[in-house]
Design a protein around this nucleic acid. Structure first.
Lengths: 345, 345
DNA sequence: CTGAAAGCGCTTACAG
DNA sequence: CTGAAAGCGCTTACAG
C-alpha cells in the first residue's frame, strides 16, 4: 500500500499541492476554512509528509546525532536517554554514532560522516582535535559538547572541580587525613578522559590544601575508567608502604573496582577504608556507595536544549552550571585508629 | 560551502550524471576507464552522494531503528551497542527509539512512527500486541524481535528455559534444597517482562522437579526488574517463616537488590544464602555475583544480522540458538547447616 | 557502454 | 489567500 502523497490530499480537498503543504505545516497566510478542509482530508487518508522528501526540499533533516565513545556504559547511556527524550519531544530523530575505536573515529571525521544525515551533533566525552571539530562543522553540523569545551562551541558546564573538592571535603570532615585519589587515566586523544577528570583532581588538591594536608604522590593513582581499572590500581596501593584511610575515586566504576579489591583483601569498608565515588551510577545504591551526583541526565537534557536552541527549534536558555552534590551512603565513615577507637572528627 | 553534486562530478569527468551515478555505486555495465575517471573526479571534489536524495530516489533509507523500552539499562544499552556496530559496518544508520511510557508507545504505533525513516526495526523486549506489530509493518518496516516471538517475524532465540534450569541445577548440585526464585513481574502489555522471564521460571521448575524438590509457592517471588524491586521482594522473603538457603534471580539487577537486602540484614552471602543471577551484567563481577551469561551482545549482533538478511544487505545465516552458560563467582556455595558444618553435596 | 529524461515527494519563491 | 512551476539531488528505465 503506497502511502498517500500531497497530491492525494490535494485532490481530495480540492486545492493545490502548495496549499496542502502550507495548510499542513501550519504556516500563516491560509484561510481557516481551507486549512481545516485540508487537515480533514489528510487524516482521512492517513497522510503524513515523507520525511525524506521534506528533507531534500528544505535541506534540514530534523535529526540530531549523538556521538559517544562507547554506548554500553552507564554514563553514556544515561546522557543519550535524557538527550533523546528532549529531542524526541521536539520532533527530532536521534541518530546514534559510537566511535569506539581509532579506526572508526578517523573514518568518521575524514569521510562524509554526518553530512546530510543530521543538522547537529551532541559530542559526549570525546576530546575533539581542532581538525575533528572543523570536520564536523564542515559536515554541516552544529555542535554541542558534553565533557569538553571549545571556543565557539556550545557545551554543558559542570563544576567538576567543586565536585572533586566536595567529595574530598566530606572525607576531611569525617576526620580522614590519609586520602588517596583514584583518577581516570587520559589516553591521548582517546575516547575518554579529558577535562572533567582533570578538574576532579584539582578539586582533590583544593580540599587537601585547604585542610592543610600534604599530598602524597604515591596516593594519586590513575587507571583506565572501569571496574577492573579501579580494582587493579587499588591492588597496587595495597602493595605500598602504609595505607590511606580513605579513597576518593573519580568515577563510580573505579570505586566499584576499589570496593572489590578492598573487600577481596579482607578489608572492611568503611571501617578500614572509606570510599567515595563520582557519578551516582544507577547501581551505586546497590553497593551502598557514597558518591557525587552530577545530574547526568540533566547534562543530557541541557545538551539537547542547547543544540535545539542553536538549531532554532527551542528558545535559548540562560547558561546554567551543574553543581555536583554529595550523596551519602554507607561507604564512608570516620577513620578508626589502630587501637580501634574512632578519632575525634 | 555547498557540497558538490553529481553534476559537478559529471562536468569534471566529462560524462553524464547517469554515468556518474552508476560509476560511483559500482553497478556493472560501465567501462573500467570511465569508472576510474569518475571516481577520481569524485575524490578530487570530495563528493559523496546526498543520502537524502538517494533515499528519495530509491525509496530505501539504509537506516534501521532500534526500539527499546528503556535505554539506560545495561541490557538494552548492550544490545543496541552490539547491533549498532554490525549495522554500521554494513553502512546502515541507526535510529534510536525509546518507548518508555504508554503515551509514547501509543503515539508511536498509531502515528507515522517509522514510516519513511527506516527500512526495518529491531524490537527489543517489548511484547508487541498484534495491532502494534501490524502497525509497524504498515509503516513499511521489516522487523526482528529480541526477547519475544511472533509468527512470521524474525527473532533471535535464546534458550532461557535451559538457562533458568542451569542456574538452579548449579544450586542443587551444591546441595541446596530450599531454593527461592526471584522473577520479573510482567506488567500487562508493558515494556518489560514477557517470554524470557517466563521461560526462566519454567527452568527453575524443571530443575526442582528433576531433583525431586517440592516447589514452595512462598518462595516464588516476582518483582519489578530493578535493584529496588529485588531488594523489596527479598525483604518480604525475610519476613516469612523460614528462609531458603539460596535464591535464583531472573536478572542480575534483581540479584543486586537481593544482595543488598541480605547484607543489610546481616546475612552473609554465600555462607547464609547463595544468590545466582541472570545476565552477566557488566557489573556482576564487581559484586562477585555468580550468574548466567546469555551473550547479550551476541543477541544484538544476531538481531542485526537477521534484519540485514531480510533487507537483503547480508547473507542469511542459519538459525542459531544462544545457550546461556553459568559463570561461577563468589555468591554461591554449598549450604551450611544450623550446626555450622557443610552439608554433603 | 553511455546519455536524456522522468520521477521520487516534498517546499517555496513568484505571480496573481 | 491560492496556484503553477521550479528545484532539492539523486536513480533508473528507456533508447541508442
Amino acid at each position: 500500500m503506497p502511502s498517500p502523497s500531497v497530491h492525494d490530499v490535494a485532490a481530495r480537498s480540492g486545492v493545490s499541492v502548495s496549499t496542502v503543504s502550507r495548510a499542513l505545516r501550519g504556516v500563516p497566510g491560509i484561510s481557516a476554512a481551507t486549512r481545516k478542509r485540508v487537515q480533514e482530508a489528510a487524516v482521512e487518508l492517513g497522510y503524513t509528509a515523507s520525511p525524506t522528501a521534506s528533507r531534500l526540499a528544505t535541506g534540514r533533516t530534523r535529526t540530531v546525532a549523538v556521538i559517544v565513545p562507547e554506548l554500553a556504559k552507564w554514563f553514556f547511556a544515561e546522557v543519550i536517554a535524557a538527550a533523546g527524550r528532549v529531542l524526541a519531544e521536539h520532533g527530532y530523530d536521534v541518530l546514534l554514532v559510537e566511535l569506539s575505536t581509532a579506526e572508526l573515529r578517523r573514518a568518521f571525521f575524514t569521510g562524509p560522516g554526518l553530512r546530510g544525515r543530521a543538522d547537529g551533533a551532541i559530542v559526549v566525552a570525546l576530546q575533539l582535535g581542532a581538525d575533528e571539530f572543523e570536520a564536523l562543522e564542515g559536515q554541516g553540523q552544529s555542535v554541542v559538547l558534553v565533557g569538553s569545551e571549545r571556543q565557539g562551541a556550545g557545551s554543558v558546564s559542570v563544576d567538576d572541580r567543586a565536585g572533586g573538592r566536595a567529595a574530598v571535603r566530606h572525607l576531611v570532615n569525617l576526620g580522614h587525613e590519609r586520602i588517596a585519589f583514584l583518577g581516570i587515566r587520559h589516553e591521548p586523544r582517546s575516547t575518554l578522559g579529558g577535562v572533567p577528570p582533570a578538574q576532579r583532581l584539582l578539586g582533590y588538591r583544593d580540599a587537601l590544601a585547604e585542610a592543610g594536608l600534604p599530598e602524597d604522590p604515591r596516593w594519586v593513582l590513575t587507571a583506565e575508567n572501569s571496574v577492573d581499572g579501579g580494582a587493579g590500581a587499588v591492588a597496587g596501593l595495597l602493595a605500598e608502604q602504609g595505607l590511606p584511610t580513605a579513597i576518593a575515586a573519580a568515577s563510580d566504576e573505579l570505586a566499584f573496582g576499589a570496593l572489590r579489591t578492598l573487600r577481596g583483601a579482607g578489608l572492611r569498608v568503611p571501617e578500614d577504608v572509606s570510599v567515595v565515588g563520582y557519578d551516582n551510577h544507577g547501581l551505586a545504591g546497590a553497593v551502598d556507595l557514597t558518591t557525587m551526583d552530577h545530574d547526568v541526565s540533566g547534562q543530557g537534557r541541557a545538551a539537547a536544549h542547547a543544540l535545539l536552541a542553536v538549531l532554532g527549534a527551542a528558545p535559548v536558555a540562560g547558561p546554567r552550571v551543574i553543581s555536583p552534590r554529595l550523596v551519602v551512603r554507607g561507604s564512608t565513615a570516620p577513620p578508626v585508629d589502630r587501637a580501634g577507637s574512632t578519632l575525634p572528627p
